[in-house]
């Protein structure tokens, strides 16, 4: 037995009634001015939802609303099937599992979905736009940290010539070029600007003993260029920022992407995957030019000695975590190279 409010289906009058499930399969409804008996099989009952009321739709348009969920379920035992969602919601394990599913989905979206989307976006940026971004970035950096190189003009021309020879057979060689700058604020550093320009600092050139080591570092930077690591990294980081901004209802951060590139380059913080990708590219290209990847290991050791495993802030080495691991990989590539030559 349960109480409820009866509506006749014709007007908004509300009548308090009590309902009885009878043995003959009917529902007896009694109240002020109301006295009906309806076959329960002809009544539609809304599915259960937390503690909210249930509505019983009687044939002919009348209806009864009742808060007594358990009694309604008892009167209509065959209608329980409609309440699957309700039973899931009341099950503590289902609720816990739902929390886990949601968090895992959210983490996956951040860890895989956003980088994937950022890469698709990067693919759509034409080379001309990327080159313009690169020029803008370079002019910003020249204002702020890069001063004219103290290297002799002939030495610069020689190194540029060496670089041009190295990249001449690489697809898209015409867009790759090297520039030299004196930059006391950022120490020994080399970075690849969007669009193909690779910047070397005087301090880095001072640490290098021979041109092969210069080529080895350049090959690594060409690897960053080849896979468009700068634009992809900045877009990936921005994607996280954009989604975070979306949740904070502030989408304006999206416009800070271009501003972020100089900052990104100065921080020099590629992901480990991107570093390995550029390293592998360098090993392969060095081998193709008959230079042992061991020179890359040699160059890395010098940085390591100068800056230690962690590296100083803003230095070339700091962008390359776990330097020993990378040296080991370069040595392995060198052994492979030696074996192939023999």
């Amino acid at each position: 037995m349960f109480d409820g409010n009866y509506f006749n289906g014709r007007d908004s009058r509300m009548v308090r009634v009590s309902c009885d499930a009878m043995f003959d399969g009917s529902l007896a409804v009694r109240g002020n001015d109301v006295e009906v008996s309806i076959p329960r099989a002809s009544i539609r009952v809304t599915p259960r939802l937390a503690r909210t009321h249930r509505t019983l739709y009687l044939p002919g348009g009348a209806q009864i609303q009742s808060d007594n969920n358990d009694a309604v379920d008892a009167a209509f035992p065959d209608r329980r099937a409609g309440g699957i969602a309700d039973r899931l919601e009341r099950h503590p394990q289902v609720v816990t599992a739902s929390v886990i599913v949601t968090i895992v989905a959210l983490v996956c979206a951040f860890a895989f979905g956003l980088p994937w989307l950022a890469d698709r976006l990067a693919e759509r940026i034409p080379l001309s736009v990327e080159q313009r971004i690169g020029e803008q970035t370079l002019s910003t950096l020249r204002r702020v940290v890069l001063k004219p190189s103290k290297l002799a003009a002939e030495r610069q021309a020689e190194l540029k010539e060496r670089f041009a020879t190295f990249v001449q057979n690489i697809p898209g060689a015409e867009k790759y070029q090297v520039e030299f700058f004196d930059a006391p604020a950022i120490g020994a550093n080399a970075f690849a600007l969007p669009g193909g320009t690779i910047v070397f600092t005087d301090a880095l050139m001072g640490m290098i003993d021979n041109d092969d080591e210069f080529v080895a570092v350049a090959a690594h930077e060409v690897g960053h260029e080849r896979y468009r690591h700068v634009v992809r990294s900045v877009l990936r980081e921005s994607a996280v920022a954009i989604v975070a901004a979306f949740f904070a209802a502030d989408v304006s951060s999206a416009s800070t992407v271009v501003v972020a590139i100089p900052v990104f380059l100065l921080r020099n913080s590629y992901s480990r995957t991107f570093e390995s990708e550029a390293d592998d590219y360098a090993f392969k290209e060095l081998a193709a030019h008959n230079i042992s990847p061991r020179v890359f290991a040699d160059a890395m050791r010098k940085f390591q000695k100068e800056y230690g495993e962690d590296g100083a802030a803003d230095a070339y080495i700091s962008s390359h975590p776990v330097t020993s691991e990378r040296i080991a990989r370069a040595e392995a590539a060198a052994d492979e190279f030696d074996k192939a030559k023999r």
């Binding site: 919601e89 609720v95 739902s98 599913v101 949601t102």
Partner: peptide, 16 residues
């Protein structure tokens, strides 16, 4: 507390 259960189950089932 009551609505949290409805919301989280809705969300998880929508994702799945």
């Amino acid at each position: 507390a009551e609505y949290f259960r409805i919301w989280i189950v809705n969300l998880a089932l929508s994702i799945v």
